[in-house]
């Protein structure tokens, strides 16, 4: 054969190549490749787990933020409600107080009026008594009638002034 080509040697080379392929595949390529695949799978799984945990954390964070927002809103509502109630209560208390104050003032007025009327009545009674006594004295003492009459009127006027006060 030209170029010293020998089919038998080609076949021996082929046999050697196939043998080498088997050796390298079984002893080196497959174990190393499997190890690399396993490690890649493990890292992918870790990455997925981490991503899941991150997603979960993000979800929880979102939930907590919503809850916080809702709590803040509830708090604000409650505060407004309490404030309104307090305002209403304050107004009611003030209104009650005004009512009571009016009642007290009215009662005081009534009482003062009654006292006034009572004093007037008493003064009138006393005046009438004084007048009666004075009339009796005049009648009893005719000679001093004129002086006594003047002093009587002065006395009545002073009594009346006191009663007015």
């Amino acid at each position: 054969m030209p170029l010293n080509i020998d089919p038998q040697q080609i076949l021996l080379h082929l046999f050697n190549l196939i043998l080498l392929f088997g050796i390298l595949y079984v002893l080196l390529y497959k174990p190393v490749h499997d190890f690399m695949d396993e490690r890649e799978e493990e890292y992918k799984k870790r990455e997925k787990d981490t991503q899941d945990a991150l997603d979960e954390a993000e979800k929880l964070k979102s939930e907590y933020e919503d809850k916080l927002l809702k709590a803040e809103k509830d708090n604000a509502d409650l505060r407004a409600k309490v404030s309104n109630e307090a305002e209403s209560a304050r107004e009611k208390i003030i209104a009650d107080a005004h009512g009571k104050a009016d009642e007290i003032v009215d009662a005081a007025r009534d009482k003062a009026q009654k006292e006034h009327d009572r004093l007037i009545a008493r003064a009138q009674t006393e005046i009438a008594e004084y007048v009666s006594k004075a009339a009796e004295r005049v009648v009893m003492e005719k000679d001093t009638l004129t002086d006594d009459f003047d002093s009587f009127f002065e006395s009545v006027e002073s009594q009346k002034g006191e009663a007015d006060e």
Binding site: Q9, N16, L20, I23, L24
Partner: peptide, 26 residues
């Protein structure tokens, strides 16, 4: 078997070297 070219001996020698190396590594 036959009187072969030196390269054929080289081929089997290389295969033997690789085999020993791969076996030790494995």
């Amino acid at each position: 078997i036959i009187d072969a070219n030196p390269a054929l001996i080289s081929a089997y020698t290389v295969t033997a070297i690789i085999f020993v190396f791969a076996l030790i590594v494995r």
